[in-house]
Design a protein around this nucleic acid. Structure first.
Length: 267
DNA sequence: TCCTTATGTACAA
DNA sequence: TGTACCTAAGGAC
């Protein structure tokens, strides 16, 4: 479930590993690099958008991007035998962490890490984030706001779920151009992303439904959205909107599914 | 057992 | 715009 909140949560969870860390690649694809840092202390962890950085010693970094399929599982020692899908295993005396299916898992330098930060937009989950930097790009763009929110150079960490949900929560038609988004709208969207994504880190899942719209509050039967969180529109195509009852629509946009409510999100 | 799908990105044409 | 890459779960047979 890799949007930005997942990565920031992983940055926190990886800190359970301390002392000298055994680094290996049961699958083999990361073996050479793993050897170089095997036994080194994990000194810090950091996330920017969907990029995760594990810092070893002073200036060695393991750069991880989960892509669509990547997953990390943590467990208590002893670790089970590694399988041919475990790209990276970290283990100390108490626990282990297995990484599978990442798009990226590479040993990089400080300079290479800087380059990654430099090409990413502000991340609502980072203290150093500047929302105006994102609005500078959005307010000058003829591209749809739906596409801009997914562009990691514009804003880092938002994925297909947060995109759909934050646009719904602010009644913004996803087809509006970036240049049509007002400063007040952007301020509200950004503040909302900060709050939603922080909650996502805490709960390790995406919930976006306001208390007054929960099934209990609306006097409807309880529901379970099929991806593990409570949402308004994501993957709810053809189902009635929780608020206005209009059928949620979906369209294939740049190879991703966009969901929105035509009743609540008008131009 | 096979097919589809997925919360992502990069590169080719 | 299409395709490749990485994994696992769920549903259709």
């Amino acid at each position: 479930m890799p949007e930005g909140h997942t990565i920031h949560r992983l940055a926190l969870d990886y800190r359970r590993l301390s002392g000298p860390v055994r680094v290996s690649s049961p699958q083999g694809k990361f073996s050479d690099a793993a050897q170089l840092i095997d036994g080194a202390p994990l000194t810090r962890t950091e996330a920017h958008g969907k990029h995760l950085f594990l810092g070893f010693r002073d200036s060695d970094w393991v750069h991880i991007h989960l892509g669509l399929f990547g997953k990390v599982t943590f467990g208590d020692a002893p670790a089970p035998p590694g399988t041919d899908t475990v790209r990276l295993r970290l283990a100390d005396t108490a626990s282990y962490a297995d990484l599978r299916g990442p798009t990226t898992c590479a040993l990089i330098t400080d300079a290479e890490k800087h380059a990654v930060h430099a090409r990413l937009g502000p991340d609502p989950l980072r203290a150093d984030a500047d929302p105006d930097a994102a609005y500078q790009k959005i307010s000058r763009s003829r591209t749809t706001v739906a596409a801009l929110l997914m562009d990691q150079k514009v804003i880092a960490g938002v994925g297909n779920v947060y995109r759909a949900e934050v646009l719904f929560r602010h009644g913004i038609d996803p087809c509006r151009a970036g240049r049509e988004i007002t400063p007040a709208e952007w301020d509200a969207v950004w503040a909302d992303l900060v709050a939603l994504m922080r909650e996502g880190v805490r709960n390790n899942r995406i919930d976006t439904v306001r208390p007054e719209h929960t099934p209990e509050a609306m006097g409807r039967p309880p529901r379970v959205d099929d991806h593990g969180g409570e949402v308004y529109v994501y993957r709810r195509a053809a189902l009635p909107c929780h608020i206005c009852g209009t059928e949620i629509r979906t369209v294939d946009l740049a190879a991703r599914n966009l969901f929105w409510c035509p009743g609540c999100q008008k131009r």
